[in-house]
């Protein structure tokens, strides 16, 4: 079964020197006929099908469009042309703790972030204890998270985002959360999810990690799809190609 279908996706951004966001500026540029922008193509004609249970890694240098592709799959960005369809529930781990309100306590943030991901209050109450325990924050439940360290925030975010078994998990460079102990724990949890049939799309600069976890990989370079295939082949080609 196809879980993710990306068809001929092209993403272009307007790269005006300064963003024209005031009426005056817009008007002046309109009069001067300078309302043309430099276009930047972040992704060009990408097609990708991900089947159920696939663990697919995306490799590429900085600025090659990896995160843009993840955002399009997650529905955060709409492509300029082409389409991206997903089938089933999706849990994006794009930036941990992005739904947090720093003035609220850890407890309040668990419910808030759960709601951001579309979970009900009752569901979050059921899983509350497990979330806090996994994040190792039981002593700090009622402390405003503006007083937390970045590691604590990332742990809490990871713990909330992986509490359900989503059909699709989107992972952007976040397997390096916290200290080595928590890293092991979070890797184990990702493994459990994968074993349970979850489809995973991950971005990582750690080639070893991609080779270890993924069965397939794609290599992006300047928004173009260079190679698609099994993880080992793609990683080898990427390393050979990127060092040239």
């Amino acid at each position: 079964m196809n879980m993710i279908e990306v068809e001929n996706v092209t993403m272009r951004f307007n790269m005006s020197r300064e963003k024209v966001d005031s009426l005056k500026e817009y008007f002046i540029r309109f009069m001067k006929r300078q309302l043309y922008f430099e276009e930047f193509t972040a992704l060009e004609n990408i097609s990708l099908t991900v089947k159920q249970g696939d663990i697919i890694g995306i490799v590429g240098l900085n600025g090659s469009g990896k995160s843009t592709l993840l955002k399009i799959i997650s529905g955060i960005l709409k492509p300029t042309s082409g389409s991206a369809r997903i089938h089933g529930s999706i849990s994006p781990l794009i930036e941990l703790g992005s739904g947090f309100d720093f003035d609220l306590t850890a407890r309040e943030n668990v419910y808030l972030n759960g709601a951001v991901l579309g979970y009900s209050k009752a569901f979050m109450s059921e899983n509350y204890a497990e979330i806090i325990e996994f994040a190792e924050l039981s002593e700090f439940q009622d402390v405003a998270i503006k007083n937390f360290s970045s590691g604590m925030i990332a742990r809490l975010g990871f713990s909330i985002a992986t509490i359900t078994k989503p059909d699709i998990l989107i992972v952007d460079e976040i397997l390096s959360v916290g200290d080595f102990r928590f890293k092991e724990k979070s890797e184990k949890r990702i493994h459990d999810l994968m074993a349970g049939g979850t489809t995973v799309v991950m971005v990582s600069h750690d080639i070893g990690q991609i080779e270890k976890l993924c069965n397939r990989a794609i290599w992006l370079n300047h928004g173009k799809l260079m190679l698609e295939g099994d993880a080992k082949t793609v990683c080898a080609a990427y390393q050979a190609g990127a060092t040239q």
Binding site: D101, E108, Y111, L112, G114, A115, V116, G118, S120, K121
Partner: peptide
Amino acid sequence: KKYRHLLATLVSRDIKV
């Protein structure tokens, strides 16, 4: 339907804040 909890949470947060 999926995001009605978020709506409720955000409104009650506004009131609290």
